[in-house]
Simulated scan of single mutants.
Amino acid sequence: MVNLKNRHTLSLQASCNNLYEVENIQDLDSLDLDHQHYFVLGGGSNVAFVEDFDGDIVTFTNKQLSITENDDSWLIETGAGVVWHDLVLQVTQKGIGGLENLALIPGNCGAAAVQNIGAYGVEFSALCKGVQTVNIKTKEIKELTNPECCFGYRNSIFKSTAGSDLLVTKICLQLPKKWTAKLTYQGLDSLTTGATPLSVMNKVIEIRQSKLPDPAKLANAGSFFKNPVVTAEVACVLKERYPEMPTYHQDKNGVKLSSGWLIEKAGFKGKKVDSIGTYEKHALVIVNYGQGSGQTLLRFVRDIKEQVRDLFSVTLENEVLLIGKNGVINL
């Protein structure tokens, strides 16, 4: 058995049968996973192992990086094992714009594609040219275009049945040289029109560090729930009851609500049960204060979802994957 406590940032006690660290696609040839239960793990910042996993873990560790300059854009190709924030730092410090709003998001580059990460008005999908994958069972290598990745809000083909056997090995980003700062979100709007990619990145880091705990110091998996999207009619009703409720219009896709605000309004900000609780500065972040268990986490998450549903008639969906004995647990 392999201990997984240090393999996911919520640091819950759990184990798996075997853990395979794969640096090159060719290394997969030695693995026979055709009939075995397995799970693909990245940096572990968006996963919570709530009990022992009865299977094997595969993680791709390649950290190759190349930056190519074209006439009107930059092409960034990086192995799935590169830490996302390290990539943002390296690219932005070269004066290349496009990634700055996504600074300090934990996890690896492969997981950025799987999760379609986003922050401060920017999503991974808007920057992604394509993703290289390998089918773990057939060993077939395939380059997926952006449309073939089926990106959605914190979603992609890699989280569906169709992509369940696909291991992300490399991502390719295309960043236009014609750069425009995206400063519409609160906190960034204080920057001047003379903002640079570096100044925006530094501001994003400052804001995130003021609100979110460092997983290395306080175990957490970042934002635990997705921001729910409701119809304009539902948002209107809720606004009448709660005029102070923040809302974000999503064009034809409805209105996005703030999960953090809903959870705080339901009385969970700073609440703690045993060693599991919400962060005192941000209700959207669930933390492990030291000896938290997977079962306590599950009960706590269920309580949050139930209270928010009862109070607002809105169902929260967890962004963090909960992994149990047989794989993903859906609450």
Rank of each mutant, 00 (worst) to 15 (best):
K129A: 14
T61G: 06
F224Y: 12
G79K: 07
K252I: 05
S293D: 09
L212Q: 14
L322P: 08
P246K: 06
T247A: 11
F312P: 03
E100V: 08
D54G: 04
N155A: 12
C150M: 13
V328H: 08
L218G: 12
L322D: 04
L33S: 10
W261Q: 09
L104P: 11
V131M: 07
F312D: 02
Y289E: 13
T78A: 15
S156I: 03
G254M: 03
N202I: 03
N46M: 07
L65I: 11
S160Q: 15
A111F: 00
S259C: 14
E319P: 07
F60T: 02
G95P: 12
L284W: 03
G98P: 06
T133G: 10
S223E: 09
G118N: 11
S15G: 09
K272D: 02
I136G: 02
N220F: 03
F39G: 02
N46G: 11
D34Q: 15
E233W: 00
V320W: 06
A195P: 13
S259A: 15
S156K: 03
G98I: 05
T296W: 03
R208W: 03
A162T: 14
F60N: 02
P213W: 05
N253Y: 11
R299P: 00
H85V: 02
L12V: 01
G107T: 09
S275T: 01
T9C: 09
T133S: 11
L316N: 08
N253C: 01
F225N: 04
T193W: 00
G55H: 04
C172N: 04
N6H: 13
A113K: 00
Y248H: 14
K211P: 13
L12C: 05
K203S: 08
K5T: 06
L87I: 07
E143Q: 15
L322R: 09
R7Q: 11
L173K: 02
I96D: 01
Q90F: 13
H282C: 09
T78F: 03
L41E: 07
C109G: 05
